[in-house]
Design a binder for these strands. Sequence first.
RNA 1: GGCCCGUUCGUCUAAUGGUUAGGACGCCAGGUUUUCAUCCUGGAAAUAGGGGUUCGAUUCCCCUACGGGCUACCA
Length: 511
Amino acid sequence: MNNKKQVRVRFAPSPTGELHIGGLKTALTNYLFAKKNDGKFILRIEDTDQSRLVEGATERVIESLMWAGIEIDEGVKIEKREIVEIGEKGSYVQSKRLDFYKKYIQQLIDEGKAYYCFCSSERLDDLRKKQQLEKLAPKYDRHCLNLSSEEVQKKIESGEKYVVRFKIPEGKVSYTDLVYGKIEVENDTLDDLILMKSDGFPTYHLAMAVDDHLMEISHVFRGAEWLPSTPKHILLYEAFGWEPPKFCHMANILNKSKKKLSKREGSVSVSDFKNQGYPKEAILNFIALLGWNPKTKQEIFSMDELIREFESADDVEKNRGFRKMNKAGGVFDLDRLAWISREHIKQMDVKDLYEQVIPFLEEKDFYQNSSLLSNFSDEQKKDYVKKVLTVEKERMEKFTEAGENNLFFFSEIGNVDKDLLRWKENSDEETKKALEKAQKVLGEISEEDWTKENLEKLLLEAAGEKRGDLLFPLRGVLTGAKKSPSPFECAWVLGKIESLRRIGRGIESFG
RNA sequence: GGCCCGUUCGUCUAAUGGUUAGGACGCCAGGUUUUCAUCCUGGAAAUAGGGGUUCGAUUCCCCUACGGGCUACCA
């Protein structure tokens, strides 16, 4: 029952720009399946379209994967800031594999399974238009199929541009997609696809088939936009006499208007989300749950938990497909991302949160020019920021928000408006007395006992029944803000000296 | 136009012939609370439509509608 082949999967982006969120989902799914099955995750670069290459794109894609925590076992990686290749399947960059493609294309030509085509793009355009008018399936009319080898030879020698096309055989194709189930298509609806372009580079279809075979890819996870061309790929494998990999198409990520999320819509690249301060765990968690359901109540997952819940190759074999994957596309909903992000940040410990937040914080003016931090040593600064984060952690959605909503932790607050200190209908006199009481209580707490718990305990004791009378003005005088964390937390972060200073100034303002 | 795929609350989804169609996000209301947030409780909110099959269809089949993808010498 076991024909245990090693699981080998690949993510194969084209280096045409930033890795976008849909690409990350593809990469993640491949990765999770590899890890679940102790398999290999391979990164291959598909740079067969010379006109779309973007300088540095390969590096950026790899960096995005690394940021997300997706480790590459084989293929193209970055080590010591250099692009390197690890593995024994030849180069993992398609533009360096042209000899392979040429060899296999020649093989198909020799066997009569592929043929040269000299048709101009003008002729092909006209043909398509005509077919569309006649409500026919648009496909190549095989104008060049029956050229004699002498004619072909002559044309090539005279310098005519040509491509090589695959001759779709008669019959029908069927295969079982691991998500979409049995797919069956009549071959005569398929076009004689181009295998080699006139610049000598292979098309995606040929390069993918050859590489996945030579690299012994066991499962191909890719976006659902590839579903219609998969029968052609199966036919190619059959022409070569190779066993095709298992295909697993994943529903696309959609935008609000239910269209495939595209690069043109802005803010869909992985680096954008990184720069906006979302935790990588949140992004991964969010996209993993689009079109995949672990069948448990759990909604917040770490990478390890995602791997744990993912279906194994054995499960897939047994069930004849993935049971946890959906066929319908899912809308990218920022509200849901926000919630997942908050949950992940809540779960982080302060030390990790600090590491994540500090690069963003260091960019901020209120941090750089903080009057409160100016006399602190680096160590004191770090402790202080950690205290701020301890308080903010429960209400933070992105790393970029650190400090933003509580600027009073970093800056002078000036004179506080008395209205901000008045609890309900209390008089100025009562407010002043409350502040003096707070001053006394806090003044009696030593630096060593200055903990959140102590502050809360002692202030609540002092407040008695009418908590608002004491706590509201105290909070106001410490923060100068309409909204803030609790007075205990604020006092704890600010420390004894600064807290008493702010209380003192508040009292003074009453004359 | 042709081919392919899809369709459960606004959104992510559960329920593989029998449930008052469940959960989560968001939204609304109430409660706790010193402000805000958290937290707690409650609420509104969905099987696209029509035919079959069946004792019984969200679930299986067909048709329609709607949506999406592909239809490049791009991937």
